[in-house]
């Protein structure tokens, strides 16, 4: 069986990762924050970058892999340019989050955890966005959309799709 990490990988520029690691003095106790910043820089956590992090922080690859796969907010596969988090926590669930998630799935053509074919949106569910008073809630790239309705979903999707100028 071919080990997956021996498969050819597109070369990844490690400079951005090094900059992040340096900003934390290559201190392994900051691993989670380092991974957060790296994900922001690369959009996801590419395997070669994680292997590099392990070397720089003097951690085993399995340690870094364990942490990177533990947290739902980390992704080891490339995500769309915009990340949609639809909340399905208790408050949002009670206020019909399920229908809204179905609405998103219908509009985008992807289930939670998937990315649209044009690479524009990744849809994910979360178990509380910490804004229960606004339930039901969704978040796109850090912006909250509270008291969510189908109409608001349409408007928000259009707004973020429009952000992508043809030259982008």
């Amino acid at each position: 069986m071919a080990p997956t990490n021996l498969q050819t990988q597109a070369p990844v520029d490690l400079a951005a990762a090094d900059a992040v690691i340096d900003s934390y003095q290559a201190d392994k106790s900051w691993l989670v924050m380092i991974l957060q910043d790296i994900q922001e820089a690369y959009n996801y956590l590419p395997q070669p970058v994680l292997e590099h992090v392990a070397v720089r922080l003097a951690l085993t690859p399995s340690h870094v892999y364990r942490v990177a796969t533990f947290y739902a907010s980390f992704s080891l596969t490339r995500r769309g340019r915009h990340l949609i988090l639809i909340c399905d926590g208790t408050a949002c669930h009670l206020r019909g989050a399920e229908n809204l998630q179905e609405e998103l799935t219908r509009r985008l053509g992807v289930a939670p955890g998937q990315t649209t074919a044009d690479g524009l949106f990744t849809l994910e569910t979360v178990a509380c966005l910490g804004a229960c008073a606004l339930a039901p809630v969704m978040m796109i790239d850090g912006t909250y959309f509270g008291k969510l309705t189908s109409e608001k979903i349409v408007a928000a999707l259009e707004r973020f799709a429009a952000k992508e100028a043809p030259d982008a």
Binding site: P3, T4, N5, L6, P61, S62
Partner: peptide, 10 residues
Amino acid sequence: DSPFGGQATL
């Protein structure tokens, strides 16, 4: 598992 489900390099 091994790291990344691949070869356990260590």
